[in-house]
């Protein structure tokens, strides 16, 4: 994000501010939405890239997600656990839907949306798996191998728990349990408020 698009007061944004921005967005405040975009677009796009992988398609999905946030902002309930969680849920859902649609469409003219301007920015670059957040990385390291695999294959890979079960060669019920155990461990390691 170029410097001139940083929101004023960036770096001091609290969760309440994010909630407030979303609630102002719900009332049609375009300035609030712009600021919200500047704060959440990178995590949204990063998540979408991990799941969708194709750069041009990921841009489209990120765009869809942010427009969905604009469209449905009034449906966000602040009692529900934070604007970021709500927005990332939309992003994950959209990305997985897109992947499934592409798989179903098979040979479809996927390249059609890929104009010459589609080369993505050099900061984003690597499609390979990577984590930028030191703390999350460290906390993922505290999970057992199966916990970590099931969590990351589902969240970053966009796989259902049944698909994950096939990928790791474990029964679906075991995978469900490992996912829950893994998130509990992550939650505690990250200090997510109980």
């Amino acid at each position: 994000m170029p410097p001139d698009t940083r929101p004023p007061g960036d770096g001091t944004l609290s969760g309440q501010d994010a909630d407030a921005l979303l609630q102002r967005t719900a009332r049609g405040d375009e300035r609030a939405f712009e600021r919200l975009y500047d704060v959440v677009a990178a995590p949204v796009h990063g998540l979408v890239r991990r799941i969708v992988r194709d750069p041009a398609m990921s841009e489209e999905v990120t765009q869809e997600v942010m427009i969905e946030v604009w469209r449905t902002a009034a449906r966000y309930d602040p009692r529900r656990g934070g604007a970021p969680a709500w927005i990332m849920t939309i992003a994950h859902r959209r990305a997985v839907d897109r992947v499934r649609r592409e798989q179903a469409a098979g040979e479809r003219e996927a390249a059609a949306g890929q104009g010459p301007g589609a080369s993505h920015d050099p900061v984003g670059e690597r499609v390979e798996a990577r984590l930028e957040h030191e703390r999350v990385r460290r906390c993922l390291g505290t999970l057992t191998r199966l916990q970590r695999e099931t969590v990351t294959l589902a969240y970053y890979g966009g796989h259902s728990y049944r698909e994950v079960a096939r990928l790791v060669g474990a029964p679906p019920n075991t995978v469900r349990t490992r996912m829950r155990d893994g998130i509990i461990r992550l939650r505690d390691c990250l200090g997510v408020e109980r």
């Binding site: 995590p43 990063g46 970021p84 990332m88 900061v123 957040h133 997510v192 408020e193």
Partner: peptide, 18 residues
């Protein structure tokens, strides 16, 4: 709590779109 936790996974993968 879980959804707040998985949102952190998204933030860990943050990548600014063009």
């Amino acid at each position: 709590e879980f959804q707040a936790t998985t949102a952190r996974l998204a933030m860990a993968a943050a990548e600014a779109p063009p």
